[in-house]
Protein backbone atom coordinates (compact mmCIF):
# COMPACT_ATOMS: atom_id res chain seq x y z
CA UNK A 1 0.00 0.00 0.00
CA UNK A 2 1.21 3.47 -0.85
CA UNK A 3 2.37 5.56 2.09
CA UNK A 4 0.43 8.50 3.47
CA UNK A 5 2.10 11.76 4.47
CA UNK A 6 2.99 10.40 7.88
CA UNK A 7 4.60 7.34 6.31
CA UNK A 8 6.73 9.55 4.06
CA UNK A 9 7.80 11.59 7.09
CA UNK A 10 8.62 8.40 9.05
CA UNK A 11 10.79 7.09 6.22
CA UNK A 12 12.66 10.40 5.89
CA UNK A 13 13.24 10.47 9.65
CA UNK A 14 15.36 7.32 9.19
CA UNK A 15 17.82 9.48 7.25
CA UNK A 16 18.56 11.68 10.28
CA UNK A 17 22.01 11.23 11.84
CA UNK A 18 23.25 12.11 15.28
CA UNK A 19 24.66 15.64 15.51
CA UNK A 20 22.99 17.04 12.40
CA UNK A 21 21.42 20.45 12.01
CA UNK A 22 18.34 20.06 9.83
CA UNK A 23 16.07 22.47 7.98
CA UNK A 24 12.53 21.18 7.43
CA UNK A 25 10.28 22.83 4.83
CA UNK A 26 6.56 23.46 5.10
CA UNK A 27 4.10 20.53 4.80
CA UNK A 28 5.21 16.88 4.94
CA UNK A 29 8.80 17.83 5.93
CA UNK A 30 7.53 19.48 9.14
CA UNK A 31 6.13 16.09 10.24
CA UNK A 32 9.61 14.53 10.17
CA UNK A 33 10.33 16.18 13.54
CA UNK A 34 7.78 13.83 15.15
CA UNK A 35 9.71 10.64 14.24
CA UNK A 36 13.34 11.21 15.27
CA UNK A 37 14.95 7.78 15.79
CA UNK A 38 15.94 6.75 19.31
CA UNK A 39 19.43 7.90 20.30
CA UNK A 40 19.70 10.45 17.49
CA UNK A 41 20.17 14.07 18.55
CA UNK A 42 19.39 16.65 15.88
CA UNK A 43 18.58 20.33 15.99
CA UNK A 44 16.00 21.93 13.74
CA UNK A 45 16.72 25.23 12.04
CA UNK A 46 13.91 27.41 10.79
CA UNK A 47 15.10 30.04 8.33
CA UNK A 48 13.11 32.87 9.91
CA UNK A 49 15.66 32.77 12.71
CA UNK A 50 15.73 29.91 15.24
CA UNK A 51 17.88 26.91 15.98
CA UNK A 52 16.55 24.47 18.54
CA UNK A 53 12.92 24.62 17.49
CA UNK A 54 10.53 22.68 19.72
CA UNK A 55 6.96 21.40 19.32
CA UNK A 56 3.80 23.52 19.10
CA UNK A 57 2.97 25.34 22.36
CA UNK A 58 0.23 24.25 24.74
CA UNK A 59 -3.01 26.08 24.24
CA UNK A 60 -2.85 29.50 25.86
CA UNK A 61 0.96 29.59 25.76
CA UNK A 62 1.31 30.82 22.15
CA UNK A 63 3.76 33.66 21.67
CA UNK A 64 3.30 35.96 18.64
CA UNK A 65 7.08 36.54 18.68
CA UNK A 66 7.92 32.85 18.32
CA UNK A 67 7.03 31.25 15.00
CA UNK A 68 8.56 28.94 12.38
CA UNK A 69 9.03 29.62 8.66
CA UNK A 70 5.46 28.41 8.07
CA UNK A 71 4.32 31.22 10.42
CA UNK A 72 3.08 28.62 12.93
CA UNK A 73 3.46 29.25 16.64
CA UNK A 74 6.22 27.06 18.12
CA UNK A 75 8.33 26.65 21.26
CA UNK A 76 12.06 26.51 21.82
CA UNK A 77 14.13 23.73 23.39
CA UNK A 78 17.01 24.11 25.89
CA UNK A 79 20.02 25.43 23.97
CA UNK A 80 17.89 27.25 21.40
CA UNK A 81 19.08 30.49 19.82
CA UNK A 82 17.45 33.27 17.79
CA UNK A 83 19.17 35.22 15.02
CA UNK A 84 18.49 37.55 12.12
CA UNK A 85 17.71 36.49 8.54
CA UNK A 86 21.20 37.25 7.17
CA UNK A 87 22.78 35.03 9.85
CA UNK A 88 20.17 32.37 9.15
CA UNK A 89 21.07 32.19 5.48
CA UNK A 90 24.78 32.31 6.33
CA UNK A 91 24.12 29.02 8.13
CA UNK A 92 22.36 27.69 5.04
CA UNK A 93 24.63 29.01 2.25
CA UNK A 94 27.72 28.36 4.35
CA UNK A 95 26.72 24.66 4.54
CA UNK A 96 26.52 24.56 8.31
CA UNK A 97 23.14 22.83 7.99
CA UNK A 98 23.65 19.13 7.17
CA UNK A 99 20.24 18.25 5.74
CA UNK A 100 17.41 20.07 4.02
CA UNK A 101 14.03 18.38 3.56
CA UNK A 102 11.51 20.13 1.35
CA UNK A 103 8.47 19.54 -0.79
CA UNK A 104 8.23 19.83 -4.58
CA UNK A 105 5.74 20.03 -7.43
CA UNK A 106 8.16 18.34 -9.84
CA UNK A 107 11.58 16.69 -9.76
CA UNK A 108 13.60 15.83 -12.87
CA UNK A 109 15.94 12.88 -13.35
CA UNK A 110 18.98 15.22 -13.36
CA UNK A 111 18.09 16.57 -9.90
CA UNK A 112 16.28 19.75 -11.01
CA UNK A 113 13.43 20.81 -8.74
CA UNK A 114 10.37 23.04 -9.26
CA UNK A 115 8.25 24.11 -6.30
CA UNK A 116 7.54 27.85 -6.31
CA UNK A 117 5.40 28.97 -9.21
CA UNK A 118 2.70 27.89 -11.65
CA UNK A 119 2.71 30.58 -14.37
CA UNK A 120 -0.50 32.67 -14.49
CA UNK A 121 -2.10 30.56 -11.77
CA UNK A 122 -0.12 30.49 -8.56
CA UNK A 123 2.63 32.92 -7.65
CA UNK A 124 3.47 32.74 -3.99
CA UNK A 125 7.19 33.23 -4.21
CA UNK A 126 10.19 31.06 -3.51
CA UNK A 127 10.77 32.12 0.10
CA UNK A 128 13.99 30.48 1.20
CA UNK A 129 13.75 27.47 -1.11
CA UNK A 130 16.19 28.74 -3.76
CA UNK A 131 18.88 29.52 -1.18
CA UNK A 132 18.33 26.14 0.46
CA UNK A 133 18.52 24.01 -2.69
CA UNK A 134 21.45 25.93 -4.17
CA UNK A 135 23.54 25.50 -1.04
CA UNK A 136 22.75 22.32 0.84
CA UNK A 137 24.91 19.27 0.20
CA UNK A 138 22.19 16.88 1.19
CA UNK A 139 18.68 17.56 -0.08
CA UNK A 140 15.80 15.13 0.35
CA UNK A 141 12.51 15.87 -1.35
CA UNK A 142 9.26 14.70 0.26
CA UNK A 143 6.37 14.46 -2.18
CA UNK A 144 3.62 12.44 -3.79
CA UNK A 145 4.83 10.41 -6.78
CA UNK A 146 1.95 11.58 -8.98
CA UNK A 147 -0.49 14.50 -9.05
CA UNK A 148 -4.22 14.28 -8.41
CA UNK A 149 -4.81 13.34 -12.06
CA UNK A 150 -2.36 10.46 -11.70
CA UNK A 151 0.34 12.14 -13.81
CA UNK A 152 3.94 11.56 -12.80
CA UNK A 153 5.85 14.25 -10.94
CA UNK A 154 9.13 12.32 -11.48
CA UNK A 155 10.02 13.70 -14.88
CA UNK A 156 12.65 13.64 -17.59
CA UNK A 157 12.60 17.44 -17.44
CA UNK A 158 10.66 19.84 -15.22
CA UNK A 159 7.86 21.74 -16.98
CA UNK A 160 7.38 24.41 -14.26
CA UNK A 161 9.81 27.28 -13.50
CA UNK A 162 12.81 25.85 -11.68
CA UNK A 163 13.75 26.42 -8.07
CA UNK A 164 17.20 24.91 -8.48
CA UNK A 165 19.26 22.88 -10.95
CA UNK A 166 20.84 19.47 -10.41
CA UNK A 167 20.55 19.70 -6.65
CA UNK A 168 18.21 16.93 -5.44
CA UNK A 169 19.97 13.81 -4.13
CA UNK A 170 17.09 11.68 -2.87
CA UNK A 171 13.31 11.65 -3.23
CA UNK A 172 10.95 9.91 -0.81
CA UNK A 173 7.43 9.53 -2.22
CA UNK A 174 4.29 7.65 -1.27
CA UNK A 175 5.55 4.82 -3.53
CA UNK A 176 9.33 4.68 -3.30
CA UNK A 177 12.75 5.95 -2.28
CA UNK A 178 14.67 7.13 -5.33
CA UNK A 179 18.22 8.44 -5.67
CA UNK A 180 19.24 10.82 -8.43
CA UNK A 181 22.19 9.22 -10.21
CA UNK A 182 23.85 9.54 -13.61
CA UNK A 183 21.14 8.58 -16.10
CA UNK A 184 18.02 8.91 -13.95
CA UNK A 185 16.10 7.91 -10.84
CA UNK A 186 17.63 4.85 -9.18
CA UNK A 187 15.03 2.81 -7.32
CA UNK A 188 16.29 2.16 -3.79
CA UNK A 189 13.21 0.96 -1.86
CA UNK A 190 9.53 0.25 -2.48
CA UNK A 191 6.71 1.31 -0.17
CA UNK A 192 5.23 -1.73 1.61
CA UNK A 193 3.21 -3.81 -0.87
CA UNK A 194 3.96 -1.56 -3.86
CA UNK A 195 5.38 -3.40 -6.87
CA UNK A 196 8.26 -2.34 -9.08
CA UNK A 197 5.83 -2.18 -12.00
CA UNK A 198 3.57 0.27 -10.15
CA UNK A 199 6.55 2.53 -9.51
CA UNK A 200 7.67 2.20 -13.14
CA UNK A 201 4.22 3.21 -14.37
CA UNK A 202 4.16 6.25 -12.09
CA UNK A 203 7.61 7.48 -13.14
CA UNK A 204 7.95 9.42 -16.40
CA UNK A 205 11.71 9.91 -16.05
CA UNK A 206 14.18 7.10 -16.60
CA UNK A 207 13.92 4.58 -13.75
CA UNK A 208 17.02 2.53 -13.02
CA UNK A 209 16.28 -0.85 -11.44
CA UNK A 210 19.17 -3.01 -10.31
CA UNK A 211 18.57 -6.41 -8.69
CA UNK A 212 15.96 -7.07 -6.04
CA UNK A 213 14.39 -3.88 -4.66
CA UNK A 214 13.74 -4.15 -0.91
CA UNK A 215 10.62 -2.92 0.83
CA UNK A 216 10.88 0.00 3.24
CA UNK A 217 10.78 -0.95 6.90
CA UNK A 218 8.87 1.61 8.94
Amino acid sequence: MALDKIGIAQRIAQELRDGWYVNLGIGIPTLVANYIPEGVNVEFQSENGILGMGPFPFEGEEDADLINAGKQTITNLPGAVYFDSATSFAMIRGQHVQLTVLGAMEVAQNGDIANWKIPNRMVKGMGGAMDLVASADNIIVAMMHTNKKGESKMLKECTLPLTGVGCVKRVVTNLAVLDIVEGGFKLIERAPGVSVDEIKNATEGNLIIEGEIPEMSL
Binding site: F56, F58, E59, E62, K71, T73
Partner: peptide, 12 residues
Protein backbone atom coordinates in the same frame (compact mmCIF):
# COMPACT_ATOMS: atom_id res chain seq x y z
CA UNK B 1 -1.91 43.88 18.28
CA UNK B 2 0.81 41.35 17.41
CA UNK B 3 -1.59 39.21 15.43
CA UNK B 4 -0.74 35.50 15.07
CA UNK B 5 -0.96 34.24 11.49
CA UNK B 6 -1.06 30.48 12.12
CA UNK B 7 -2.08 29.57 15.63
CA UNK B 8 -0.84 26.00 16.17
CA UNK B 9 -1.07 24.34 19.58
CA UNK B 10 -0.92 20.89 21.13
CA UNK B 11 -3.27 19.53 23.74
CA UNK B 12 -2.16 19.35 27.35
Amino acid sequence: EKRIEQRTVRAK
